[in-house]
Each structure stands twice: as C-alpha cells, then as structure tokens.
Simulated scan of single mutants.
Amino acid sequence: MMKKSFYLNNFVFSFVLAFLLCASFFVCFSLKSKEISFVECTFCKDEFHSIDPKAWLIVYPGIVGCTKQCPLALAKLKAFRKAREGQNISFLYLVMDENIPVDHAEDSLQAYKKELPIQTYHPKGDKRKFFQRLGAYLPISPVLKERDEHNSIFFCIPPSRDRVYVCKDLDHFAIETLSQPDVKNHLD
C-alpha cells in the first residue's frame, strides 16, 4: 500500500512539474513573440525628407484594387489616428507593384482620404526590395492579385528616420513603443 502511494505521489509531482515547465515555456515564448522588431534604415532620412520631420510615419503596404484586407487595414489606420488625435503621425500607402500608375493608386485612396490623410509611396529598386524583405506583399501573377489574400502588416518609422519597426498590431506597437523613453520623446 505504501509503495502505491509513493508511486502515485511521484507521478503527481512529476505531472505537476512537467505542467509548470510547459506553462513557463509557453509564457516566455508568447512574450518573446510580442516583442517589436525593427530594422535599420539607411535611406529613410533622405527618402522621407519632405514629410514632417517630427512625425511618425505609419506605412501600410497595400494592393491597389484590393477588396478584402486593404479596407480592413485602412479602417485600422483610421481608428489608430482617431485614438491618437493629438499626436504627430503621417500615413503612407506603400504601392509595391511598379506597374500601377501613380494616378491610379491615388484614385483608389480617395474614399479614405476624407478621414485619413494618407499619401501613396512608390519605392523603386533597392528601396522596394527592402520593404519586400520586411514582408510587403508583391503579387506578380494576376491570379494572385484576384485572390486578394495577403497579410496586414504595418511599417512604423520614427521621426529619427533611422529604423523601420515591423508590426502586425498597431495598438500593441503604440503601447510598447510609448513606454520606451527614447521613443516616447518623439511623440511628446
């Protein structure tokens, strides 16, 4: 009888220990995945010199003619702007497809410009490749464009224009970056 109790106690202890280890691993991993990553940007200062140097840039890489993800992402941008009314933020719509004329891209944003002051940005060459490496979607095939299946990521560029933050959740980004002293100073 005592032997059964000993094995049962060891089994329960081992199970609880394994559960706690798994739970701590899950918590650490989930916290790690919410970290905000950034990439140094050597051309941003020159590329965006005409935009208010005190403003954060929020860049959304959309697809002209998109009917699913882009309207949702642009609605997120409107809500983000509204929640941060007093902050100095500029918005750019990143057009990755070099075959889209500038006028066509501008026309596709007219409905959103009433509530969201957003400009189009057409990067060329290495600058386009830079954003593509960060996750900006470039559908090459017309079939892929018709499917309209791409993710919604945002690129956030601080007033220092020395880096590009890559984030999927703008609200999480704002909370995390506003708590960092070097970033908070730019938004005050």
Rank of each mutant, 00 (worst) to 15 (best):
S37M: 14
F38R: 09
F38N: 11
F38Y: 13
F38L: 06
E40T: 13
E40V: 06
E40P: 00
E40R: 07
E40G: 05
E40F: 05
C41L: 02
T42E: 09
T42Q: 14
T42M: 06
F43D: 10
F43I: 07
F43V: 03
F43N: 05
C44F: 03
C44Q: 03
K45C: 01
K45G: 03
D46C: 00
D46Y: 06
E47L: 02
E47I: 00
F48C: 03
H49P: 00
H49T: 12
H49G: 01
S50Q: 12
I51S: 14
I51D: 06
I51T: 05
I51V: 10
D52N: 15
P53L: 00
P53F: 01
A55I: 11
A55C: 07
A55Q: 07
W56K: 01
W56C: 01
L57P: 10
L57W: 10
I58G: 01
I58W: 02
I58R: 00
V59D: 04
V59A: 12
Y60A: 02
Y60I: 01
P61V: 13
P61A: 13
P61L: 09
P61Y: 13
I63V: 15
I63R: 03
I63T: 14
I63W: 05
V64D: 01
C66D: 02
C66Y: 04
C66T: 07
T67G: 06
T67S: 14
K68V: 08
K68T: 09
Q69Y: 10
Q69E: 13
Q69A: 15
Q69F: 10
C70W: 06
C70V: 03
C70E: 08
C70S: 09
P71G: 06
P71D: 12
P71V: 11
L72W: 13
L72Q: 15
L72C: 09
A73R: 00
A73W: 00
L74P: 07
L74H: 06
L74M: 10
L74T: 07
A75K: 04
A75N: 12
A75V: 09
K76F: 11
